[in-house]
Amino acid sequence: MTMTPNRFKHLTEAYGADVARWPKAERADAAALMADEPTILREALSEANQLDEALDLWRPPEVRSALREAVVAAAPKRRRRTGWSGWLAPLGLGAGLAGACAAGVLFGAAGFTGVGQTQALDTDVITAATAGYDNAADIVGSGDAV
């Protein structure tokens, strides 16, 4: 749209004096016109600015902390892992003990329940127990943070 003094005035009437609220595509042409005809257009801007300033005095409601907390409380929660690594870490067991227990329990469980159920157990802990205690500590420790 070509920028004319009439269009400029219409924009001030619709969007006010703050050019940041004007249609992006027309801002540069409006600035060029303002440079050419500052006197007439300044009057339109000044009138719009008076109304803008009055509108800005209408303050919105403040966010109460009780509202903020209620909104946060209703948000989706992260699901905790429920495998071995999920409950071993909070017990505060040392890395060696955790790894050794996990390995012992798992091998026992495999003996009683067969292969199908063993596969359902936490594979991270199986890997850690067979690979070494240090790795077990990393994996057990990380389980709680997932």
Partner: peptide, 27 residues
Amino acid sequence: RVAEGDPAAVRSLVARKLPRILSLAGR
């Protein structure tokens, strides 16, 4: 991140949007 249940993302989104939508509804 909110969909994954990331608590920091939840707080960020609330901080970013709650004042905005409360203003809209209030007015």
